[in-house]
Design a protein around this nucleic acid. Structure first.
Lengths: 148, 148
DNA sequence: GTTTGTGCAAATGCTTTGCAATTTG
DNA sequence: CAAATTGCAAAGCATTTGCACAAAC
């Protein structure tokens, strides 16, 4: 990994989560966590499977799915449905909270962050008297053509 | 239908869309459109299938999926992935644009509308030089307990 | 009459599940 | 050593596809 020391913080968080919830600390779980944190991409299960295989780490798809559940519960990973049928996963620390723009013609995915979302969230919490744990915002867009 | 005259506007829009794009005006397509506009719920393919069957209208699931594509393209219907695996559809006229709050403990879905989303959208369009055609925003929340 | 759409049934592909073997605590 | 986890293969299930028949234009 590029930045080993900061990954240790993540590992420690995961360990804490596993212990608090009575889950076992298996090597597979840490290997999967590490794989997801080694990239900024939005990976699907199959990409993770292949990447790990290329690193000579065999893990079953079943374990991948199971571990994803834990990673999401522990908030170390976020889950996305960009429109194709597969589920994508991305690390959710060191990246700040961000949302996504999906370019509908090319399939490209851009990221952005806007503080007004937080404001909307607070308004909703007040008006509806609820606690918002998470949100997802996607914009579907196309690039404007440059004028000649 | 409760409000026949306003549904005629929708039907006319759909007709225009079909004609402009060289698609045929089949009774199945109008029947499906009508079914979706007869409720405020977020329906999945199977619910639509069953509801139509109860109305003694037989239509195949294949046709439902095909027609959904047209309805979404014509912007008469919007599509949602609330987190369970099925796709949900809802009419997109007479309801105004709105977004959704998903209560993660009960599965309930609430609707809201906030003008700041429009503002964020305009900022993004400027900053990234793109045209945003659509968005989807979901908040994942739980109700606050009442204090005794 | 051509071409497009429909319905059926089979195929697809992501995800889940059951279970024996293994590993963790 | 008891209980949780893994891996494998089979099962599930929403959606898609291929093709013969029917309907629109």
């Amino acid at each position: 990994m590029a930045c080993t020391s900061s990954f240790n913080i993540i590992k420690a968080r995961f360990t804490a989560f596993l212990e608090e919830n009575g889950h076992r600390k298996t090597p597979e779980r840490y290997a999967i966590l590490e794989e997801i944190y080694s990239t900024n991409e939005h990976l699907d299960i199959d990409s993770i499977f292949v990447k790990m295989e290329n690193n000579n780490y065999r893990v079953s798809r079943a374990t991948l799915y199971n571990t994803m559940e834990l990673l999401i519960e522990s908030r170390l990973v976020r889950m996305h449905q960009f429109g194709d049928k597969v589920t994508h996963y991305e690390k959710s620390f060191f990246d700040g909270k961000h949302d996504h723009i999906i370019l509908t013609d090319t399939g490209e995915i851009l990221e952005f962050s806007d503080p007004r979302i937080q404001e909307i969230k607070e308004t909703i919490e007040d008006v509806f008297n609820m606690k918002i744990d998470d949100h997802s915002l996607y914009f579907y867009a196309t690039r404007k053509k440059k004028l000649k």
